[in-house]
Amino acid sequence: MSKTLRALILFIIAVAAPTLVEGGPIPSLELTPPGEAAVAPDIALNDLNGNPASLSGYRGKVVLLHFWASWCLPCRDEFPKIKALWQRLKDKDFVVLAIAEDSHKAAEAFAKKEDIGFPVLVDQYGSALRSYGIKALPASYLVNREGRLEGMAVGAREWDSNAAYDLISGMIK
C-alpha cells in the first residue's frame, strides 16, 4: 500500500470523527433582521391544487413565509406551532405561505394529515430555495405589508409563543 493511500485512510478517519458531535438547543424566537430594508424576493409557484400563486399576490398582508419539508424532523415538530399561530391570527391580515421543498405527493399527504388551512406551494425545482439562499430547513421569513423582509429564522422557533403573536400583531397594526 502506498504512502499516499495510507495518508488518505488516516485523513478519512480523522475527518469522520466529528460525526459523534451534535449541536445546541432550539432557540425560542430569535429572528435575524435583514441587513437592509430588503424587499422579499417574489416567489411564483403552484399550490397543491396546481393553481399558480405568488408572494406578491399577498401584498398588503403580513406573510410568514415558511420553508419546510415533510422529511425534515424539526420541520414536522415545528408545524403545529405555526398552525397554532395562524389559527390565532387568521382572521386578521396575516397569512402563512408554506413553501414545500418536497414532492407534490409528499407535501399533499402531509398537509392532509396535519389539516393545514393555509396555502402550501410546491417548490419542485428549488427556485424559491435558491432565490432566498436557504441552506437549512426549516427557514422562516416575516414579510411586512409592503413586501419587505422584517426578520428571518433558520431552524425551528416557538411560533405559538406570545412573543411571536405580539410581534406579528404589531406588524399587522
Binding site: 504512502k3 499516499t4 495518508a7 488518505l8 485523513f11 475527518v15 451534535e22 449541536g23 445546541g24 438547543p25 432550539i26 432557540p27 419539508a69 422529511w71 425534515c72 424532523l73 424539526p74 420541520c75 430555495l129 436557504i134 441552506k135 437549512a136 430547513l137 426549516p138 433558520v154 431552524g155 425551528a156
Partner: peptide
C-alpha cells in the same frame, strides 16, 4: 500527500455555515 489535507483545511476555513440542532442542513439530504 499534503494536497488532501490542504483541501480539507481550506474547506473548513471557508465553510461558514454551522447548523444548530433543530435544523436540517440541506447538503446532508
Amino acid at each position: 500527500r499534503y494536497i488532501p489535507l490542504i483541501i480539507f483545511w481550506l474547506a473548513l476555513v471557508h465553510s461558514s455555515t454551522a447548523w444548530a440542532f433543530g435544523e436540517c442542513g440541506l447538503s446532508c439530504c
